[in-house]
Structure formats: structure tokens, C-alpha cells
Amino acid sequence: MTETLKIIIPMAGWGTRMRPHTWNKPKPLVGVAGKTSFEHLMDIFKTLPDPANAEFIFIVGPHLGEDQIPPFVAEHYPELKAHYVVQTEMKGQSHAIYLAKEFLHGPMIMVFSDTLVETDFSFLKDETSDGVAWVKPVPDPRRFGVAEVGDDGWITRLIEKPKSLENNLAVVGCYYFKSAEALAAALQEQMRRKVQLNNEFFLVDAINIMLEGGAQMRTNTVQVWLDTGTIEATLETNRYLLDHGRDNSAQAKGRPTVEIVPPVFIHPSAEINQAVIGPHVSIAENCKISQAVIQDSIIEAGTQIERAALNHSLIGRDCQVKGEGNGGQAASLNIGDDSSVIL
């Protein structure tokens, strides 16, 4: 693969399922297990066959996305070859990708921003098929999109919410296309045919047009498929990542008067006193926590928590949570940046 690999990442959605956190920041900048979900997503590209020969195209939303994603990338990934396309009308996945048509040349990867998979892209250097769809076998596929695979091993079509359990390979939202031009042609054809649902153009329909035209696509199976699209999913992803490598409880245990119940991620700059933290708690930089019991929660940067018990909570940046410390039932909070709560 000598042509530049294009990596298209649509991230323009409003993120309503992550409210209130998405009122003042785009969804990929919500924290999970010690860093943003954007950074977790970028980690999967470390296994690209030739990382220096890749260009990223981020399809961002107006205002929050276009204002915050470019400076975040510039600060955290200064060497990255990055382009930005603003999607002002939410007409679906295919529409989003087609907006980046000027970049659709050569091989490409498309991954949705709230999809985190454990995968190794190094096989792409020898890939000869027209495309690859990353899939995960699921016990009940009826609420997913699935890949139907023929006897010869090639994908025959993608099916949304199948009625039967027969095809259980759920597509996880990560695709490789040998020819971005072929995808662009299918996107154009999809829009010409007006193949849409509730005024949105979905990518699976464009891929089905490619398959109808004879494209040979295969599946690549992943065992780990995480999601950061909802509060519940983000807390679940936090638990998974802490259970699988993001735990820093050995380092965090250096604090006197603090009982750590692994796994946790506690940023070294967080000040914690007289507290029980964990399991499954992520605490970002510059937090101040005292007289608190916290489990199964994400606490973003700069937040202060005092005399409170929290469980199953997602607390934004620079919040203040104060309780009476009377040993009552743990609160489950979902509060956005700069909020103040007295329990």
C-alpha cells in the first residue's frame, strides 16, 4: 500500500444521548478511563502499516466540533496530517462521507467516532479485497446491522436489524475500502436513487450498492467492541478499559488516607483525601476530592467533590458536588461541565 491511506472519521452528530455533556463539547471529547474517547479512538491507528503515510479527515459538526476538534488535534497530535470538513446538515452517514469527496482517493478507512474496537490494522499492507467490514459475533443480532456472508466467504449484503438469528456478525462501524473512488461512486448512486430512511442516508445502503456492482468485501472479526454513544455505554466502556490495561491503582495508592479499590485511573495531579475510590472510577487532572466514597464513575478535570457518596455517575469538568456526608445512599449523577450540586 504505497498510496496515502485516508482515514475518514465522521463525528458531526449532536450527541443528544450524551446530554448534558454535549452542550458545550463534542461527544468525542468526553472523558473515559483517563482520556477522551477521541484519544482512545486514535490509539487504534497505531497499528497502521505505514502511519506516516496516512491522512485523517474529520467530519465535524458546526460550532462545537469545528471550534474544538481542530485545536485539540493540533495540541495532542501536532504531527498528524489532518483535514476538517464541516457537516452543517444532518443527512446521515453517507452524506457526511460524501462531503469529504475531494479527499476520497486511494485506499481508505472509515470509522465512526463512538466506535472503539480492539484491532490490528497491520494486515492492510497485504489486503487485496475491495473492502473489509469489521464485525463482532453477537448472540442476538436482531437489533444490529449484520453482514451476510456467502459460502465462498465474501459478504453478499449488509442487513439492518435482521429478523432471524442466522446471521450474527454485527457490523461495528469500521470499514476499509481499497478504492475510495468506488465508495464515492456508490454514495453518489445512493443519493441519486434517494435510498434513505427518515431523510438520512445510511452507509450500509451505499455498501450494498458496491456489493451489487460486484465488489468483493470480506469480514474481519473483533472480539472487543466498545461504545461511547450513551451514558450507560460510556460507563460500561470505562469499566472495560479499567479492567483491561488502563488501571493505575498501584501509582494511585501512594496517597495517605485514601483507600483505593482497583481498578481505577487517578490522574497524578488529583488531590484526594479521606476517601474510598473504586472500583471502576476514573478521575481526571486537577480534581479535588475529600471525604468521599466513589465507585463506577467518571469524574472529569477540575471537579471538586466533598462529603459525598457517588455511584454510577458521569460528572463533567469543573463541577462542584457537596454533600452532608451523613452516610446516606450513594447518589447517581449525570451532570455537565461547570455544574454545582448540593446533595
Binding site: T16, R17, M18, R19, P20, E200, T230, G336
Partner: peptide, 12 residues
């Protein structure tokens, strides 16, 4: 595609 549209301010 959501069969229900809703207002989502402090939560979904």
C-alpha cells in the same frame, strides 16, 4: 433511526 424524537436538555 429513532422511532421517537425527544427533547434532551439535562439528559437524553
Amino acid at each position: 433511526t429513532d422511532p421517537v424524537e425527544c427533547r434532551s436538555e439535562v439528559e437524553y
